[in-house]
């Protein structure tokens, strides 16, 4: 009996999570007249027109491409710089290590609103405004510290004897790191990449401030639906659904790593 109750609670919670998303999806396959007309749980005449609008208009779909480019650049940069640093934090004591670690974390705490204007001026002055790399670098501000934090947790779980044995066997540090150590923390890297993806994908404030046309993220493009003729709810909903899809795909690929990975991390 107790088992049943537990599962009901979980089920209720998951329905609570999915209902608003379902409603968005429901709206995205309705026509605007039906959205504004009657309250229907299922669309009377499902239509894919809203999606067609988005996928055929470059002004719309380039937003998705831009977002994916800067997120990908950000994940690569974050992982490349965070891996050696996390190794250093998990294996060595060095002058100022604790202060440095806390300082890194403080950047995760900095409200993006604080950095809005300085970032704009900084990237404008080096002619990086409205490029993918500018957004990717700006997102490093919170993703690199997070990546270091997560990876350090994973690396601390790997016994140090492995390092020592490898060095005795004559491995150089770079070779040990790439051929032995990185495969050992594969799942940690997967989880870290997931988190970097997540925080870069969902962030809008900085991404919108640092871009205008060339690298405009999809999330900013969505404001276009407010036109003179009122809100185009159907297209807005379809654009929203399409921003959820990449996230859902990424979770699906790392789902086992998440379950396994979370447990191996800092617990």
């Amino acid at each position: 009996m107790r088992f049943q109750k537990r599962h009901i609670a979980l089920l209720v919670y998951i329905i609570f999570l999915l209902l608003p998303i379902y409603w968005l999806f429901n709206m995205s396959i309705k026509t605007n007249t039906e959205i504004l007309g009657a309250m229907t749980l299922f669309p009377d005449a499902p239509t894919l027109n809203n999606y067609r609008t988005i996928l055929t208009d470059p002004a719309w779909y380039s937003g998705y491409i831009n977002s994916m480019i800067y997120v990908a650049i950000n994940v690569v940069i974050s992982l490349c710089v965070a891996l050696p640093a996390a190794y250093a934090f998990s294996r060595y004591n060095f002058t100022g290590d604790k202060h440095l670690f806390f300082w890194l974390l403080t950047n995760r705490m900095a409200p993006p609103a604080v950095f809005l204007l300085p970032f704009f001026q900084l990237y404008s002055s080096v002619n990086l405004f409205d490029t993918h790399i500018a957004v990717a670098l700006a997102h490093c501000l919170f993703n690199v510290p997070l990546a270091v934090w997560i990876l350090e947790g994973f690396m601390s779980g790997i016994p140090k004897e492995i390092d020592e044995t490898a060095y005795i066997d004559g491995y150089s540090f770079p070779r040990f790191f790439t051929t032995i150590f990185i495969p050992l923390i594969r799942s940690g890297i997967g989880v870290t990449a997931f988190f970097c993806f997540m925080f870069s994908w969902v962030e809008l404030l900085l991404a919108r401030t640092l871009t205008s046309v060339e690298a405009k993220p999809i999330a900013a493009t969505m404001t276009r639906t407010v036109s003179a003729s009122g809100m185009d709810w159907g297209v807005l909903a379809a654009a929203g659904v399409l921003t959820i899809v990449p996230g859902a795909l990424v979770i699906w690929f790392v789902r086992n790593y998440i379950a396994k990975g979370f447990a191996m991390g800092r617990v």
Binding site: W201, V202, L236, G240, T243, I244, G247, A248, I251, A259
Partner: peptide, 24 residues
């Protein structure tokens, strides 16, 4: 299944979260 469903809201861009609730 639970992992994927639970993580779903976390991966929605924040302004879309606002939009979802604005509509809902």
């Amino acid at each position: 299944a639970c992992m994927v469903l639970l993580a779903l809201p976390l991966l929605i861009p924040w302004n879309v979260v606002g939009t979802i609730w604005q509509i809902f």
